[in-house]
Write a protein that binds this DNA or RNA. Structure first.
Length: 410
RNA sequence: GGGGGGAUGCCCGAGUGGUUAAAGGGGGCAGACUGUAAAUCUGUUGCCAAAGGCUACGUUGGUUCAAAUCCAACUCUCCCCA
């Protein structure tokens, strides 16, 4: 333990951005005990390998784990390779597809390379729950499931909703919380961290640990970070996410597009900006002394700084202002190589050009974009769907607000 | 094991023989406005070598000049009874 940090200080750091700690006194007691004995707490986090990239919503939980590590505690990541074959029903309105073993492995590997952007590798143990769940006998399963009542499992909202809507609920899905709880028993977790949607699963871990004669883990719940649409939870499948590996300009831009009312959440959960300062920003916006856009630029800069560098943050802001405030062309843009062979009498159909540049998902979409006035070349709008242009090396093709490309004749 | 529903585009949901690439809503995309915010308004929303063609209403097969619509089998699913 780093004795320079008192238990009370540890507790304060841990509480930042946290929605709920169940039960708070137990966490305090565990921290004290760890401080006295010098034995680190075992902090558990279950990773769902159905996703493949770490986004800043998931990073909220990882950052919390990192705080524990910085105070000397041990983080145990459990890759849910086995549980992924069940599919976490939490908050879901339908059964999740089961993943193949290969898919899970690939995802887990991608994850692994990204964890260390946030976590301290030295203080992290990575395990796969297939190692123990896969080896349980039916008798083991019966024994563990006997500790939980059906009513208890079915009382959850997600199951209730699905049942009342006449949607299917697979029997195996009822086992998910139990599987996750067995993980807690297996790794002897002191604390399990998760999003608020993990409440049920994590509390189940407490029950099962007690039933197995060990001290129950403490549940630490973090708010779910809304996606950049500001409404739904951030997730890759909804496309409303900011990946930790996003390029600085993209990252900055995505943050700028979040609705104002989730800005404070982003500040608390995704940055290290002090709580007092966040309050001051909120107050400033409320009183009109701080322009929300400036507050958001600061936010975007902070986040880019975390995953790239302070300089990258400054540069990304400059680029953002250049393109969106001054309406100039970006400094960097992808180039599209246009072979002579594509030209007919020196010109090319615009729809074809957009297709080559992969700036629309289909040529039908390219037509629509042209029709709606979203396409321009060197700032000149083109609206003729059948139109051809005579491309010149170095021209800028713009499709919609965000997509730019420079033409290169080859 | 018995009986009764249901499966439509990204999602919800209308449609019960031709006028249906399929109403309406949500979401998405684009345009205007703006702060790449919100709100609002407008357009658009299967694909292609594009005044034409192709593919689509759980799957397969059938009836018909014509099927999302009728028939058969199958698959999945929900409810009631046991």
């Amino acid at each position: 333990m780093e004795h320079s940090v008192t238990v009370e200080q540890q507790f304060e750091i841990i509480k930042r951005g946290v929605l709920d700690i169940v039960p708070e006194e137990e966490l305090l007691a565990k921290l004290k005990k760890s401080h006295q004995t010098g034995k680190p707490l075992r902090i558990k986090l279950g990773i769902d390998p159905t996703a493949s990239d770490i986004h800043i919503g998931f990073a909220v939980v990882l950052r919390k784990m990192r705080q524990f590590q910085d105070m000397g505690h041990q983080v145990i990541l459990i890759v849910g390779d086995f549980t992924a074959s069940i599919g976490d029903p939490s908050g879901k309105s339908e059964t999740r597809p089961m993943l193949s073993a290969e898919q899970i492995r690939t995802n887990a590997e991608t994850f692994a390379s990204q964890f260390w952007l946030i976590l301290d590798r030295e203080k992290t143990t990575v395990t796969f729950n297939g190692d123990w769940l896969g080896k349980m006998s039916f008798a083991d399963v019966v024994r563990e499931t006997s500790r939980v009542t059906v009513a208890r499992i079915l009382e959850r909202d997600d199951f209730q909703n699905r049942l009342s809507e006449g949607r299917p609920v697979g029997l195996h899905e009822l086992l998910y919380p139990i599987a996750q709880a067995i993980d807690s028993v297996e790794v002897q977790a002191d604390v399990e961290v998760g999003g608020s949607d993990q409440r049920f699963n994590i509390l189940m871990g407490r029950d099962l640990q007690e039933a197995n004669g060990m001290e129950a883990q403490v549940g630490l719940f973090l708010p779910i970070l809304p996606g950049i649409d500001g409404v739904q939870k951030m997730s890759k499948s909804l496309g409303n996410y900011v990946a930790v590996t996003d390029e600085p300009n993209d990252m900055f831009g995505k943050i700028m597009s979040i609705p104002d009312d989730v800005m404070a959440d982003y500040y608390t959960l995704c940055t290290d900006v002090g709580t007092d300062e966040i309050e001051a920003i909120k107050a400033g916006i409320a009183s009109g002394s701080v322009h929300p856009m400036d507050a958001k630029k600061r936010l975007a800069r902070e986040i880019v700084t975390i995953y790239h560098s302070a300089q990258a943050g400054v540069d990304a802001q400059a680029e953002f202002e250049r393109v969106f405030s001054s309406r100039e062309v970006p400094l960097d843009m992808p180039e599209i190589n246009l072979p002579e062979s594509e030209l007919e009498n020196g010109s090319i159909r615009l729809t074809r050009l957009i297709a080559i540049a992969e700036m629309a998902s289909s040529s039908s979409e390219a037509r629509r974009l042209i029709q709606s006035g979203a396409v321009s070349i060197d700032g000149e709008k083109i609206t003729d769907v059948m139109g051809s242009i005579t491309p010149i090396d170095g021209q800028t093709l713009r499709v919609g607000k965000l997509k730019f490309a420079r033409l290169r004749m080859i």
